[in-house]
Design a protein around this nucleic acid. Structure first.
Lengths: 356, 356
DNA sequence: CTGAAAGCGCTAACAG
DNA sequence: CTGTTAGCGCTTTCAG
């Protein structure tokens, strides 16, 4: 069907090896024969069969990428960064959505290995056991973990310091004067989110005058909405809430709004991730920026370096910095000691316990 | 490195062909030898080399998918639908981001063909010439076009009727009583968006009392913002705007807000696409739903059917229905004839020309 | 039921 | 500079 080296060889009257050399621009082919070969190749619309090439060379020029769900804007951005880096290096990426299902994750990983990808990027691997990961690694194909803390497992990876991120958020809110702060987090043992919660608590503990309220729930829009409903019903005195991530924060916005309150007038809100939407929503969301795109890119860079040196496979972990991006969902809280509170804000704004 | 059929054959004392048969569950292998082979295979952690298999069988079990930018939420959803359908059928998908660059698009398509994908899904092919598409098609690999109208080109595809969608929007707004309606669209010859604009105009023309205002610009958040700034400055009397898509509508929201007006009180707004965000933004956006996920899924189904029948390659086009989803960004306009206008709305709401 | 052999399309020494 | 040969790992007749 498709034209092959052999076709060109026959047509040109030379051996396929020569055609191969000519087309691959290897030094050592007569200019005239090369010209002729190239001409025939283009006339016949020759397209090299990369699978055959890959089989022969052992290089598929393909990477695997498994994420839980590409529709998560955080992951979308990460994937784009990865794809761009791969493309720039002449690689393609096979995209897999695991839906956080460990079995599906493993299955995908195996399929990828069978397709002889030269490396695989994995996100949301928290649910995999160390044994499972080791098994995958045992095939000799480099694996880079996305958004997992640097571990003793000796896997390469890219991540941010979530603990520090949590502290960042906590301190920010405290510095603004908030004293009753709710933190909406995920399920009880979600690695990254728990780290954020811990960081937050660390900040709080350094300031005995602040009261933290930790709420567990689903860390998404719906979950944020539900957690906030509950929160608002039980704690009239919160003046600030920080959410596990932006998606959760969006749910908070809705719930706060439905409760007849305003952000940031009554409740200061801060998210985490800085997805695109954070700047579009109203009020524009103050949040912590994770360099998603760069992380995807870096992960591929590490992967390719690892793939290029089957010897010297020293794992590498890149830790990215976090940055608070202030928008309009937080406001400084006037404290008792700050003498003057004008009428308007006194009635319109929620005040910390004791103020009213 | 990796264990191969040959390894298993040696270990088991049979020929590789037998091993192949045994492992592929082909009828005609002694139960005992099969058992032994399977045992050895699993002991050696055998993973078939799919590339070799693909080379031998001519089936790569891989599909190509080129979109402009996965970060476009519309496309994200589409991609997810496609990936799910592919996975369900035992296929993988290679994801490519072309950034709407025709050269990059063609280049990606060629790379995919060289990797012997069994089919390719392409979005945003408007910029490609018929000749270019034909060239790609000439390789005999089925191609399904995403979001292009059924054409004479005899390509398979999935799409919606954008013209009808435009009418749907126009009629809805007219029925609500709006008389000066702006339509924010894209560049002058953007196929789909132009169709929507045409459909909108069709609706308007059937109602002589309605004044349409067409604004061209970039069909994204920023563009929507800019177009609206201009619109509001030049036309004090608009009471409704429909945007080319949701992203544009989000820009409208911001601009309207900054102008000190409210949605839907002063301006009724309607989008197109129904991306997830549409229900999250405030006010929740009334829009036209495109079944993105289903379209991605359907496209893969068509592709696989085409791939399965190299003979009988009758192109198939699936046209999906559009559905108006009413949320809270539009309000009915009180007309002169509707006798009573209470004080509050008279001062607070914008009224059509002549009312104030 | 199983072995032998050829082949998928390309690369990579190794000779000439 | 170019042809020969072997081989990547698996499938698939064709014999036996």
């Amino acid at each position: 069907m498709a034209t092959t080296l052999k076709d060109i060889a026959r047509e040109t009257g030379v051996h396929v090896a020569t055609v191969s050399r000519a087309l691959n621009g290897i030094y050592g082919v007569d200019q005239d024969t090369r010209k002729k070969i190239v001409a025939v190749a283009s006339r016949l619309n020759y397209r090299p069969n990369r699978m055959a090439k890959a089989l022969a060379t052992g290089k598929s020029h393909t990477l695997g990428l498994v994420v839980s769900d590409i529709r998560n804007p955080f992951l979308t951005e990460l994937v784009r960064g990865a794809e761009d880096a791969a493309y720039a290096a002449g690689y393609h990426v096979l995209l897999c959505n695991s839906d956080l299902d460990p079995a599906k994750q493993i299955q995908y990983a195996h399929s990828l290995l069978e397709k002889r990808v030269q490396g695989v990027l994995m996100h949301s691997v928290a649910a995999l056991s160390e044994k499972q990961l080791q098994e995958l690694a045992s095939y000799g194909v480099p694996i880079v973990l996305l958004c997992r803390p640097p571990s003793a497992l000796a896997f390469s990876g890219v991540s941010v310091d979530n603990f520090q991120g949590g502290m960042l958020v906590g301190n920010y809110l405290i510095r603004l004067g908030h004293r009753v702060i709710a933190h909406l987090t995920g399920p009880r043992h979600h690695g990254n989110l728990t780290e954020r919660a811990n960081g937050f608590m660390k900040a709080v503990e350094a300031n005995p005058e602040v009261t933290p309220i930790i709420v567990h729930g689903r860390h998404n829009y719906q979950g944020g909405y539900e957690m906030t409903k509950k929160l608002l019903a039980q704690h009239q005195n919160v003046t600030a809430v920080c959410a596990a991530n932006d998606a959760t924060a969006f749910g908070v916005i809705r719930a706060v709004f439905e409760a007849g309150l305003s952000i940031p007038e009554d409740i200061s809100l801060i998210g985490f991730d800085n997805v695109e939407l954070a700047s579009i929503v109203r009020p524009p969301l103050t949040t912590v920026d994770q360099p998603k795109y760069d992380m995807g890119q870096a992960a591929v860079e590490i992967l390719l370096r690892l793939a290029a040196h089957p010897d010297n496979r020293l794992p590498e972990h890149r830790l990215f910095g976090l940055r608070l991006v202030e928008r309009q969902s937080c406001r400084p809280l006037k404290i008792l000691t700050s003498s003057i509170i004008n009428k308007k804000s006194a009635t319109k704004f929620r005040q910390p316990p004791g103020v009213q």
